[in-house]
């Protein structure tokens, strides 16, 4: 946490930035900042898109409608080229994941001290205390740097994977895929089962950790630059932000794409 004496240490600074605002104890801790920011961004997504959906007409689209339709069509094309079944859920799911994750990732581009400082000021702490790193108000503004966030997404996807597998192949078909897969001989079923179980569990795990790792690393480097280099940080911030600008939509896209791929694998017979 923050340096014990008045002087702020770099590790203290970084630690402070990587601590969530939380309520509760042990497992029943809630990261208030992650929850609040993700819900706010989710609402930004659904309300702004809902505004278009309400007025959507086949006539000449407005600028915002055109923009929304561009995103929707992009997601629709991606889904159609990958998922060959018929489902009313996959495309809206992909759209939600893409836009929501993109918005949450974009929070990474807000300079690292702006929102935590603002939050501390609102909480009534003085500027001196904040500058010394002694504030007890924590604020992590990028929800995708919280592993709870990314796991929630990937577990949702995982549940859908199992649901689609069972729905389309039946419970027997789903189990058969688990034990009869690479080696189709009864005495190797136990081995298949271990193998397939690992690969099944690895899917949501890698899905969430990929997003988390990329964003966490990006955030950490922003904090490092802000905490160590002094005045010369500005151009370096700019360079890192420019690079990170590629990572942000890419990770959102990868999460969406893999969701579609996993679900299409789950709903196809082998």
């Amino acid at each position: 946490m923050a340096g014990s004496a008045g002087e702020q240490t770099i590790s203290g600074y970084i630690q402070h930035h990587l601590t969530n605002a939380s309520v509760g104890e042990g497992f029943w801790t809630f990261h208030v900042d992650t929850l609040a920011w993700s819900v706010v961004l989710g609402l930004v997504f659904i309300l702004s898109f809902r505004a278009v959906a309400k007025k959507a007409s086949a006539g000449v689209p407005g600028k915002w409608q055109a923009c929304v339709e561009l995103i929707v069509e992009f997601v629709d094309d991606t889904v159609k080229s990958t998922y060959h079944g018929k489902s009313a859920l996959i495309a809206p799911l992909a759209l939600t994941i893409f836009v929501w994750v993109l918005l949450m990732n974009l929070m990474d581009l807000i300079p690292v001290d702006f929102l935590p400082t603002a939050a501390a000021l609102i909480a009534g702490e003085s500027m001196d205390v904040i500058a010394a790193g002694q504030s007890h108000t924590y604020m992590k503004v990028v929800p995708t740097t919280d592993v709870n966030m990314t796991f929630a997404l990937s577990l949702g996807v995982f549940a859908l994977m199992i649901f689609y597998s069972v729905k389309i192949k039946g419970f027997g078909g789903f189990m058969k895929e688990l034990y009869a897969h690479p080696f189709n001989t009864p005495w190797l079923y136990w081995f298949n089962f271990i193998l397939e179980l690992v690969s099944l569990v690895a899917k949501p795990l890698s899905l969430s950790l990929r997003l988390f790792g990329n964003l966490y690393a990006g955030e950490l480097i922003f904090i490092l630059i802000a905490g160590t280099i002094g005045v010369w940080q500005l151009p370096i911030h700019f360079l890192w932000a420019a690079f990170h600008l590629l990572v942000i939509p890419l990770q959102a896209f990868i999460f969406m794409m893999l969701t579609i791929v996993y679900l299409s694998l789950a709903s196809e017979e082998h």
Binding site: S22, G24, G26, F27, W28, T29, F30, H31, T34, L35, S38, V39, G42, T96, P143, D146, V147, N148, M149, F151, A152, L153, L155, G156
Partner: peptide
């Protein structure tokens, strides 16, 4: 990396 009840909140939101 600490998994906690935030997960459920986010799952609901999702």
């Amino acid at each position: 990396m600490n998994i906690n009840a935030t997960l459920f909140g986010e799952l609901l939101a999702f």
